[in-house]
Amino acid sequence: MQKPAHRFPFIVLAVLVVLTACVTVNIYFPAAKVEKTAEKIVDEVYQEKKDTPPAEQKGKPSSMIDGGLLGGLTRLAWLGPATAHAEDATTVSNAGIRALKEQIGQRHQELLPFYKQGQVGITKDGFLEVRITSGLGLPQVATLKRLVDADNAARRQLYEEVGKALNLQPDQISQVRQIFAKQWREKAQAGWPVQADDGKWSTK
């Protein structure tokens, strides 16, 4: 029996629909978590807020010793209240991020005079840029440029580390940068140059 001619395209269409359904990828970007992380890191770098000790997890003890034959003694060996300090689950951190944050923080202290003089500013992409060099000798300009280059390299790595810690795709790192850029600029002190999203520079 001859098959209807229109059946083949219908099957192809059906297969395509099924395939399309199969390859649908749900891209998730944890914006809130990145934002919290950025806020925390920027605060610590700028040292506007002092580090607060992590909240202690209160509640039942985390472990205990059951002494078996020495069951009675287990109560004596009851481990006191757990003092495990839980990290803030809404932020991201690891050894790399902590080290980079520390580097950027240390360098920030060296960059502070340049921020205040308007010689270095924060770009819309979350990096630093040398704005003006008037009033600086060439050795100082060299120092400033080297600091900015080193800081930008650390920032670039920081954004990648945060993305990696959150299992983000490489093309999502730009969103991490933008979130950090917002925090760097919002928390900048008055008098620092900042670049708006439209590319225009102003003094905060």
């Binding site: 992590p54 039942k60 003890p61 034959l69």
Partner: peptide, 20 residues
Amino acid sequence: LLGGINVVNGNPDNRIGFSD
């Protein structure tokens, strides 16, 4: 069975910060 000591994880959901 006839002696020794048990160490029990009383709080399986415990989360410990890195510095801690």
